[in-house]
Computed example of a mutant assay.
Amino acid sequence: MGSDPKGRAFVIMGVSGAGKSTIGAMLAKALKCDFLDADDYHSQANKEKMRQGIPLSDEDRIPWLETLQDTLRENIINGKTVILGCSALQKQYREILRAADSNYEPGSYCSLVKFILLNVQVEVLVARLEKRAAEGKHFMPATLLQSQLDMLQIDNSEGILKIDATQSPEAILNHIQNALI
């Protein structure tokens, strides 16, 4: 198996409203690969909790992250590049996703799974979430935003690419592509 091409995964991460689905789908199209939305992998119970404004616990999140890990691993093993839109707010959650690379050494941050953080100011996020809720486009209410912001942990040693996501989607995509080359 030595020379078989390895797949890789790029996780577009950030809090709700940062633009993960929009940017992830655009990046997937640009790289001619699949885009996976982590929200599609949530259990009905998780979606219902969030709809009711109840933040998820680790007990809710870990099985969801393990399902995402399995999906990423399958793509990587099959030599496919894939884009995943996933909040991945805490280092422990990103470690679960990094471990989709079967050669990953925990804590090394050297994985075929790479993270791109969409950074957005709170006021912009609130406006985006309120607009989405008014359009009936998402189950995540703006009231849960603060709990997500409180959870967001970024350690510079992880080597996460940080992008200003208040720019146009095209500018964001260009920044990401330039950083990946």
Rank of each mutant, 00 (worst) to 15 (best):
M1R: 14
P5K: 15
P5G: 08
K6C: 12
F10S: 03
V15A: 13
S16D: 05
S16H: 05
S16P: 01
G17F: 05
S21V: 09
G24S: 08
L27R: 07
L27I: 07
K32S: 15
K32I: 10
K32N: 15
L36G: 01
L36H: 10
L36T: 09
D39P: 03
D40N: 12
E48P: 05
E48I: 10
R51Q: 14
I54P: 04
P55T: 00
L56R: 00
D60S: 06
R61T: 02
W64F: 04
L65E: 02
E66A: 07
T67Y: 11
L68Q: 01
L68E: 06
L68W: 01
L72V: 03
L72A: 03
R73S: 15
E74L: 12
N78P: 08
N78Y: 11
G79S: 04
K80I: 02
K80G: 03
V82T: 13
V82C: 01
I83N: 01
L84A: 02
G85Q: 08
S87D: 04
S87L: 03
Q90E: 12
Q90H: 10
Q90T: 11
K91E: 12
Q92R: 14
R94W: 02
E95C: 08
A99I: 08
A99H: 07
A100R: 00
Y104A: 01
Y104Q: 04
Y104W: 08
P106H: 06
Y109G: 01
S111Y: 06
K114Y: 09
K114E: 14
F115T: 00
I116Y: 08
N119V: 12
N119D: 15
V120P: 06
V122M: 13
V126K: 12
L129E: 00
L129A: 08
A134F: 00
A134Q: 14
K137M: 11
H138P: 04
M140H: 06
T143H: 11
L144P: 01
L144W: 05
L145E: 05
L145I: 10
L145N: 02
S147M: 06
D150P: 06
M151I: 10
Q153T: 14
Q153F: 10
I154C: 09
N156C: 12
N156V: 11
S157N: 14
S157G: 11
S157P: 03
S157R: 15
E158N: 06
G159Q: 02
G159P: 05
L161G: 00
D164L: 01
P169W: 01
E170M: 12
A171K: 14
L173C: 09
H175Q: 15
I176T: 02
I176K: 07
N178M: 15
I181M: 15
